[in-house]
Structure formats: structure tokens, C-alpha cells
Design a protein around this nucleic acid. Structure first.
Lengths: 338, 338
DNA sequence: GAAAACTAGGAAAACGGTTGCCGGAAAGCT
DNA sequence: AGCTTTCCGGCAACCGTTTTCCTAGTTTTC
């Protein structure tokens, strides 16, 4: 299996087909007026040399590279990946290639990437990250459009696409109410984490709307299973009874589930359980399978990419766009048999 | 926050500095012989216009683009991501940018990506994927070097970097032997899956080396927790006793752990448990924390990137390179107190 | 049968950089 | 003063494509 020595150029193709370079270009791009026979001859020559036009040279002329940069603020993680996949998919369909840049929470590294992307003349940039918090804009006065996905920009003039976590939390509570639960507790991540606060606030508000109090003040802790287990201890030690727990993440929910079972409470008969993220590993591993809020991250990535493409074509969509979450109901919150 | 209209060109810089284009280029790249004063003047002009040399135009001349393509055979998943991160890191250090391409198990899509990457004149390509199986080469006679990471190429002349799963499985068994277990069972994924077969074979072989039989024939099933739980049922129903289970994945191990506890067997006192993958979500979520084999995927990605860089610079490393796995010991296999 | 109207394809100028070569000016030497 | 050397920096070619303009040849038209 030899290695082809070098890439064929259009000059090679032209020579082989016995035409000028310009004519070869026209033949391959369907421009100009050429005899069909000539066109075929050139195409055949190109095929024979497995010619692929040099995209760099081409974009030199067109001013567009058909590439975009994707920068992750923090690390490429569980949340940024679906966003990334969705975006890659939508962009690939538009014949655009994606530069991957892992920011690693390092501002220096991030700025280096921004410069690199600009020198590569990307047509646009997507910024994403692990959390939904608003962040300072990646740079001021960039010559290309930028879209923030999942994470959002602190500048309201920038285009950000985020999940509607408030709506998602509300849906979770509404579902628990619909299956007849009224003594609902909330266990979630650290209070300094934006998502934890937003989801907790939305849950409380929705309960208040029904004239209900939560079964306990929201329990802020970590995003781990261990915290979920620990939180159950706290709930059981408290005086008030509870018939449902809405958790800020699936991992917490799983911990809660395991601890409840260990304490002899049945899920969902005694306690209904709803998680957040709809992460298959957790929802399927949980016994019983876990009801959860899905943020549709892949769709979010896709939307972000579409907005970026629109912006590149001159129709920006500034502002913060919140995409709906939806609830996926499974056995952990199924109505108990009468 | 306005938008800069267009990228400054070196001609703009030259004009502002009052020198010719060629001189400007030399000043910025430290070539030629120029007065220090001139150099500074040009640099200042470049800074003022926030000039970034057009990488496409530049590579037109140098013949190198300082980009590589990363194609995932199947989907961007739990295994390909660390590989990808490692590779991106190593390449970024070498000032190379990465094109991300998600093959999605679709050969058409894959071929499209190969063509695109070639037209973008990448300096090399890394192919990765979800499984370690050998795959047919991505294409014959490519004009750029290719390295397969995690997945491997069926052509032994290609460069592949893979984890030494055999060694990893052996280490797991050796560890169980070292903590005094002799009646060891093996629960793993589907038999048609390469990793399942390789790991099982290595485990059996290592046992045989001690003159031992497994506590039961290897149990092939799925990679899920559910299968792990189910497998415990099978083991308990069998006649032979067992004092350890080596699992083909952490998810299986976790299922096994939960089911053992539910059946009243203590981990690690009654049964020691070792998983595979060292996936934090599982090893930490498990009660007790899970001992597991780590394939060092990030390091693998890094190695692959380094080999690719070497190949680009003219020193290819053909063949299949197996990188060592290591065992991370946690409580699930701790020696029981005497 | 000549002028007008097409048609097919070539020549050359971009696009944005890099680099080898060369010439002019200043400085050093006799 | 005249010659050589050194130092700066400009000129132009080149990288691979696209596109505009133009010309020569072929048809059509009256």
C-alpha cells in the first residue's frame, strides 16, 4: 500500500485533459460555457488523478472558508458533547467543517484558540460549556459571528441558545402533582451552581402556585449519587413526611432511589421520583427506571448551529433563546396501582 | 459592540507602516535583515489593525496546513471522547488545529469526510471509535499519514494505537489472586464483541496459569447494569461457590454489586469485585467504590497524536502498538479485615 | 456574401502571503 | 577620491483556484 506522493493540482488536471487551467476550473465547477465533451474529458482527468480542489486556495478567492470553530469554555464533558454532536451534524449538512478547541477553563488557552480560529478565517464560532451560567463574552469586536450554546453570554446583545431549565423544573413538579403527590421534596446540587438555584426556584414557585409548601426546604449539596443518598438520611430524620422527591440531576436521583430502597421505602409506591438530565446510564441503571427532564442538548446544538449559519448569511438572531425541556416519564413516578 | 468589518491583510499593515508587503512579512516572521526600528514599526501597525495572517494563504506557500482530521468510525461516545481530548491536547501543543468528524457508523458519511479532509489538505488523520476491533482501513493510498487510535486497522502496515486489554484483564485476575481469591467468576459483554472475548480469554488463561478453573464458565451478555444483576442470579443458582467476580465493564460490575448486596452477600468480604474501564461515574457511585482497570484513553489519544506528528515529519511508526492498562484498587476488592 | 450574434476556451488578474534575488545607499578601506 | 563591503528593503515570482475579459471560430441573418 504505497502512499501517493503529492496532491494533484488543477494544473495537472488541465494538462492531462489538454485544456487551460481556467477551463479546467470551469469544467469542474459547472461554470462558463464549455462543450459537454470537454467537460467530460476534464472530469475524467480529475478522477484519474483523484483531484480534490485545495480548499485553502479556493477560500482565498471566495473569502469564505466553510469552517467554524467550536470552543468549549471548560472541558469537553457530559453536557457539551451532545451539544457538540448536534452542532457538528447541522454544520456538516451545510458542508461546513468544525475545528474543535478544548478551552479547559483556562482563559489564556481560550484566547489562544480565538486567535488561531481567526487566523484560520473561520466563518463563525460556537462557544459551549459544561454549565448554563452566563459568562463574559469570549472577545469583543470579533469579525465573525459567535453563538453561545448551553452556556450563555453575559452580553444580552450576543446570541445564546440555552435550555429552559425553569420550564423543565416546572414540568417535573406538574407531573408529580398530576400523579397525586403533594408532599414534594427537592434535592439538588451546590447552591453556588446556577442550574441548582434556577431549578429549585422554579420548583418552589410552581408549588406555591398551587398553594403548596415543599416537604422540606430545598437541599443543596453536590451533583453526586453520594449526596443523593446522604440527602435521604436528612429527609428521613426530619419530622415532615414526603411522597415525592424531585432531584436536580439523575445522579442525585439515583442516589436517592438506592437510599430509599435501603430504608424500606418503595419507589414509586411510597415515594415518586423525578430526575433531571435524562441521562440514559442513570435512568436505565436505576431501579425502577427513572422519570427525568430532558434538555434536548443535541437539538440545542443543532439550533445553535442553525442560528450561526443564519448569522453568517447575514441574519443574526441576537438575544437569549430558551429551548423547551420535556419530561420523559418512566416507572419511578408511575401512578401506583389503586 | 460593533463588528469589525473585515480582516486586515498584510497589505494594510505594510501601508500603515510605510513599507512594502514583502518587508512587512519579513518583519512579522523574523526573516530577512531589517533594522530593528522597522521591525517594531511593522509590529506596531499589525497590533493596531489586529492583524492575523491568513493561515490558508500561508499554507498555500508552505505546503502544510497545520491541521489534522479526527474521524470517529462510529459515534462520538464515552470511549472516543477521552481519546479525542488527549489527541487534541497533544496536537494543540504542536500548534495544530483539529477538524472533528463524526462518522456515525455510516461508510458513505465517512468517505465524504475523508474527501473533505483531503480537500482541506490536512497534514494527517486520526481515526478513532467506540470499540477496539480491527476495521478495514479508511482508504487506500492516502497522500497523508493516518493513525488509528483505540480502534485498529486490519492492515498490519497501518499505525494503530490500542489498549492492551489482555494485559489489563490479566492484572485484574492477578490482583484478585493476590488478595486471596481463588473461586473467580467472569461476567462480561456480548460474545460477538471483540473486547468481551479478548478480556475473557486473558482472564481464563491467567487462571489456568495458576492451575485454576473459573468459578463458572464466562457469562457473556450485554454491557449493562441490568445484565450484571441478572448474571448474579445465574451465579447464585449455580452449584459452585465464588469469592470474586471480574467484570468486563464497570456498568456490569455495578449491577453485580447491587444484586449481590440485595442477595445478602457482602462486597468485598464475601465477594471481591473488579470492573473494567475505570469510569468515575460507576466506580464512585458503586457501594463500595469499585476497583477497576484503566485503559488510560487520554494517554492513548496523546500517543496517537504524537505518532501522527512523527509520521508527518517523516518518521512513521507502522504496526499495532498496545499501551499498558493499569489497575486502580478501591474498596470493592480490599482485603477483608482478618 | 458580409455583418451580426454566438460559442468555446485561453490569458491574465486577482486572492493573501512568503521568499529569493537584486540594487541603492552608507560606511570602510586604500 | 575611488573602490569594496555591508546593510536595508523593494521587486517579483510563486503557491492553487476562480473569474473576468477577450479572441478566434462558427452560425445565423438579411
Amino acid at each position: 500500500m504505497g502512499k501517493l506522493e503529492r496532491h494533484a493540482t488543477i494544473a495537472d488536471v488541465a494538462a492531462l485533459a489538454g485544456v487551460s487551467v481556467g477551463t479546467a476550473s470551469k469544467a469542474l465547477n459547472g461554470r462558463g460555457s464549455l462543450r459537454e465533451e470537454t467537460r467530460m474529458r476534464v472530469r475524467e482527468a480529475a478522477r484519474q488523478l483523484s483531484f480534490e480542489a485545495n480548499a485553502g486556495a479556493r477560500s482565498l478567492h471566495s473569502g469564505r472558508t466553510y469552517t467554524v470553530g467550536m470552543i468549549t469554555t471548560d472541558t469537553i464533558g457530559r453536557f457539551s458533547i451532545p451539544v457538540l454532536i448536534g452542532a457538528e451534524d447541522a454544520l456538516g449538512a451545510g458542508e461546513m467543517s468544525v475545528f474543535l478547541c478544548d478551552g479547559r477553563d483556562d482563559p489564556i488557552r481560550e484566547q489562544y484558540y480565538v486567535r488561531t480560529l481567526l487566523s484560520r478565517r473561520v466563518d463563525g464560532i460556537i462557544v459551549t460549556g459544561r454549565r448554563t451560567e452566563a459568562r463574559t463574552p469570549i472577545a469583543a469586536d470579533l469579525p465573525v459571528p459567535v453563538v453561545y450554546a448551553f452556556i450563555s453570554s453575559a452580553d444580552p446583545g450576543d446570541c445564546s441558545v440555552v435550555p429552559d431549565e425553569t420550564g423543565g423544573a416546572r414540568k417535573a413538579v406538574e407531573h408529580l402533582l398530576a400523579v397525586g403527590r403533594t408532599r414534594i421534596a427537592h434535592v439538588t446540587g451546590p447552591e453556588h451552581h446556577n442550574s441548582a438555584r434556577v431549578r429549585a426556584a422554579a420548583a418552589l414557585e410552581r408549588l406555591a402556585q398551587e398553594g403548596l409548601e415543599p416537604a422540606a426546604p430545598p437541599l443543596f449539596g453536590g451533583w453526586s449519587e453520594a449526596w443523593g443518598r446522604q440527602a435521604v438520611g436528612i429527609l428521613l430524620a426530619g419530622r415532615t413526611e414526603f411522597d415525592a422527591v424531585f432531584c436536580g440531576s439523575d445522579q442525585i436521583a439515583r442516589g436517592v432511589c438506592d437510599a430509599l430502597r435501603a430504608a424500606g421505602r418503595r419507589v414509586p409506591q411510597d415515594v415518586a421520583l423525578v430526575g433531571f438530565d435524562n441521562w440514559d446510564v442513570m435512568t436505565e441503571g436505576c431501579q425502577p427506571p427513572l422519570t427525568s427532564v430532558d434538555m434536548n442538548l443535541e437539538g440545542l446544538g443543532r439550533s445553535a448551529a442553525e442560528m450561526l449559519l443564519a448569522a453568517i448569511n447575514g441574519s443574526p438572531s441576537p438575544g437569549r433563546h430558551a429551548l423547551p425541556c420535556h419530561l420523559v416519564v418512566r416507572e419511578s413516578s408511575a401512578v401506583p396501582l389503586p
